[in-house]
């Protein structure tokens, strides 16, 4: 364990920026001077831009691994010949001050996009090219429920370096070799001070086991829950584990020597009405009840079966962002209660 000051950490970050893209929490002004702000992970040009004291960013950092839009292929087409170039990302990235829940979100995405073969080449490359510098939360923030879902505010399992804020600066824990390599150049002193233990008290949210979900699939509850859903994409886009995407070609330039095409991949959302509509018009998830239910089943029932991971890390962003107050923790509580009721009723019959 090492001890360093915020100034030394800042100097180290500034030096890192010479050779890698440093992505860190940054305050973004909104509404043309109306005084509102958003905190977002963004590439920073100087440590002066980095916000060290924060709760949660508005968006998860998943976009630095699965960008909201990326070029998959550059395609040149001339008469009857086509050439394709892979546009694989090359940049070295450092993600500074990633929270344990977001790092855990990347573990979920790894399971889906890398470990479940064949691996997604673009995501995998960005993961390889990125070093994660974690920053422990001293406690849970409003809407957070990581502890209810197997995480912890000081969980260092999914980062390369873990920082803990202490009196006089930060304790630095090297978790992986990649992390150790990145730390070369950090001015810090060795210490035997133990890492502070975060306050893990948080809301008690019962999370039903994956195998208990199918019995509830046809309950009226889902229709009632989705009544207020607007079918917007906000919850899925802020989510650290939602990864649905769309792919399409864009013709960028056309001339006598042929056309230049980009095959783009962009985020898409299972909440969208047309998400599943096929060319003939048939839509297997025609109502928002079908779609919202599918989103929650995907997280708590399907992903555990298909990829071995619950696709929720308790970051609370979907709760904070929902314009109409749909709350995943409330849903989990109600679903657990519903399951208990059904089980009681079943016993009564038996």
């Amino acid at each position: 364990m090492k001890l360093t000051s915020r100034e030394q950490l800042a100097a180290w970050l500034d030096a890192l920026m010479e050779r890698a893209t440093v992505i860190a929490p940054r305050q973004v002004e909104c509404g043309g001077g109306s005084g509102t702000h958003l905190l977002l992970y963004q590439p920073v040009a100087s440590s002066a831009e980095v916000v060290f004291d924060f709760q949660r960013t508005a968006m998860s950092p998943k976009g630095y691994f699965l960008p909201s839009t990326e070029v998959l292929f550059e395609i040149e087409k001339r008469s009857n010949e086509v050439t394709l170039d892979e546009a694989l990302p090359q940049d070295e990235q450092v993600l500074f001050a990633i929270r344990p829940c977001d790092a855990r979100g990347l573990r979920v995405l790894d399971a889906l996009l890398v470990e479940h073969e064949p691996a997604d080449a673009y995501y995998a490359q960005r993961r390889r090219n990125t070093t994660l510098v974690g920053l422990a939360c001293p406690h849970l923030w409003p809407e957070c429920f990581c502890t209810a879902i197997g995480g912890a505010p000081d969980d260092s399992a999914d980062v390369d370096i873990m920082l803990y804020e202490v009196d006089g600066g930060y304790l630095v824990s090297e978790i992986t070799e990649k992390g150790t390599a990145l730390l070369a150049g950090l001015n810090a002193e060795e210490t035997d001070q133990p890492a502070p233990v975060s306050d893990r008290s948080g809301p008690s949210v019962p999370v039903l086991a994956p195998e208990a979900w199918p019995a509830l699939f046809n309950e009226l509850y889902w229709a009632r829950l989705s009544d207020r859903c607007l079918s917007c994409h906000a919850c899925t886009y802020v989510c650290p584990t939602c990864r649905c995407f769309d792919v399409r070609d864009y013709t960028r330039a056309a001339g006598p020597n042929g056309i230049h095409i980009e095959r783009l991949r962009s985020w898409d959302s299972c909440m969208a009405a047309a998400y599943r509509r096929i060319a003939g018009g048939h839509n297997p998830r025609p109502s928002k009840m079908h779609r919202l239910r599918n989103r929650y089943y995907c997280k708590f029932n399907y992903c555990p079966q298909d990829f071995g991971a619950v696709a929720c890390v308790g970051c609370g962003r979907c709760i904070a962002v929902c314009p109409v107050g749909i709350d995943i923790t409330e849903m989990l509580g109600e679903v657990a209660a519903l399951a208990a009721t059904l089980e009681e009723r079943g016993k009564g019959k038996g």
Partner: peptide, 30 residues
Amino acid sequence: IRCYACRQACPGCYCFECMAEQVDPLWVGI
């Protein structure tokens, strides 16, 4: 972030297929 929360919250936006998501013809793209 093109989450369409604005459009979905708007009583005046009720098109079955919004021009932003229409692919044929493609007005906006993904």
